[in-house]
Design a protein around this nucleic acid. Structure first.
Length: 425
RNA sequence: GGACAGGUGGCCGAGUGGUUGAAGGCACCGGUCUCGAAAACCGGCAUACCGGCAACGGUAUCGUGAGUUCGAAUCUCACCCUGUCCGCCA
């Protein structure tokens, strides 16, 4: 969420950012409306407070007369009139405020200057590591390898939960467990993250805090009887851990990581990438979250991204880093790198991580602040997060990239201790 | 799920309708004293918003939201959370 003051003070900057996202024509009427509403809101506040001040004076006068044993019925009547006026004005203020708020929720974050303008065709590959296998045509796709090795049972997953729900079995199930431990160990022991184990269902407030609601409600699984939502990523509970709190400057940067299952309805995805593990409703992921000071946050995006890349390097999977263009950058994000890994049999680059800097956009919404120094005013922190990494596509790539002529799959060295073997099959 | 008890400033804690933004204490900051420190003493010490160039003025905030009242931390209702006991359960 943006600061309302942005509408008054930095309208040009806001417009320019929306233009790079390709959203200006869509949002322009909204910006105009928000501007007008904001003025109305402030006018209502001024008037309301003037009447409240009057009411307070009258009440004090009543108290004094009472004390002196004088009659105050006239003043009490006046107070009653003012009271009615006050509640009318209060309603007016609340209505204007709710509307401004609703509009602000519709405006995405402003991309950093270095983020290229335009839609996804302007995404830029900024780094590449490793060499993808060139013999993809002769390889089995991961769903066939997984099935023949007894690791994946997609038909029965669909039977018990519907399409898009996976059952891992045997070495497949153990692989999930191995990936979880491998990634968490790496981030806690070598990258300085504190491990968290978090709830998979959260309240509406929490979903609003990180920006999933109110705009993307139809994409979320919900438990309406309890007013709870299933998390689409561990980012939601982890970033909200410090909601409504003021951190000490010495707490920054704060680095948290968490494994979690993630639930996504992904409305409208039918037909695209539906085979195998490419797009599923429930998946596993290790997530990195950082709280940073505004001065270091940009640099910390590089750090966080490199830490996600480290996972891929240790898994010996060729990848590339893509700087997303403004139009492809997520609603709350100011800058995002995607990491893509090549799945040779499928013949596609698969997104396995998305590392984002949210500047103060989430922090303002969730009210997460820090005090730069004793006695100074609190400021909003900058939040960052990135997957490191999402499991299903990694599993797909491991199964395709590691395939050998005899049908077995080699296990990357780093994973061998966790899996207790050097090959699958 | 049921029965009690309770939610007040960074922390502890007083306050049951009228200068209470809120006593007192702790912590913290500044000062006096001291070679220095501690102790003692003196002073300071919430946040957000509105108006104003500013000095400053005003409003709101005692878990959250509604209500009663001229006036609510204080009364009423609903909800949330915490504690204790009971029930149920992996």
């Amino acid at each position: 969420m943006h600061d309302i003051r942005l509408l008054r003070d930095q309208l040009d900057r806001l417009r320019e950012g929306m233009a790079r996202r390709g959203k200006l024509t869509e949002l322009q009427p909204l910006l105009d409306r928000a501007d007008a509403l904001e003025q109305a809101r402030r006018a209502a506040i001024t008037e309301l407070e003037a009447q409240q001040a009057r009411r307070n004076k009258v009440s004090q006068e009543v108290a004094q007369r009472r004390k002196a044993g004088e009659d105050a019925t006239e003043l009490m009547a006046e107070g009653r009139t003012i009271g009615e006026l006050v509640s009318a004005l209060e309603q007016k203020r609340a209505a204007a405020e709710a509307e401004v708020q609703a509009l602000l929720f519709e405006i995405p974050n402003i991309p950093l200057d270095e983020v290229p303008a335009g839609d996804e065709s302007h995404n830029a590959v900024v780094k590449a590591w490793g060499t993808p296998r060139a013999d993809g045509a002769s390889l089995q796709p991961h769903w066939e390898v997984g099935a023949s090795l007894g690791m994946l049972d997609l038909p029965r997953g669909a039977k018990v939960s519907g399409s898009g729900f996976i059952v891992y079995r045997g070495l497949g199930a153990k692989l999930v467990r191995a990936l979880m431990n491998f990634m968490l160990d790496l981030h806690t022991e070598q990258h300085g993250y504190e491990e968290c184990w978090v709830p998979l269902v959260v309240t509406r407030d929490t979903m609003v805090g990180t920006g999933q609601l109110p705009k993307f409600e139809e994409d979320m699984y919900a438990a309406p009887a309890d007013g709870l939502f299933l998390i689409p990523t561990a980012e939601v509970p982890v970033t909200n851990l410090y909601r409504e709190e003021i951190l000490d400057a010495s707490d920054l940067p704060k680095a948290l990581c968490a494994y979690s299952a993630c639930f996504r309805r992904e409305a409208g995805s039918a037909g695209k990438d539906t085979r195998g593990l490419l797009r599923v409703h429930q998946f596993d992921k290790v997530e990195l979250v950082r709280y940073a000071s505004p001065e270091t946050s940009r640099q910390e995006l590089e750090l966080l991204t490199s830490q996600a890349e480290r996972v891929l390097e240790l898994l010996e999977l060729p990848y590339r880093r893509v700087l997303l263009a403004a139009g492809d950058t997520g609603f709350s994000s100011a800058m995002t790198y995607d990491l893509e890994v090549f799945a040779p049999a499928v013949g596609k680059w698969l997104e396995v991580s998305s590392c984002s800097l949210f500047t103060d956009f989430q922090a303002r919404r969730a009210n997460i602040r820090y005090r730069p120094a004793a006695g100074e005013k609190p400021r909003f922190v900058h939040t960052l997060n990135g997957s490191a990494l999402a499991f299903p596509r990694i599993i797909a790539c491991l199964l395709e990239h590691g395939q050998q002529p005899d049908g077995t799959v080699t296990v990357p060295v780093a994973l061998q201790p966790y899996l207790g073997r050097t090959t699958l099959g």
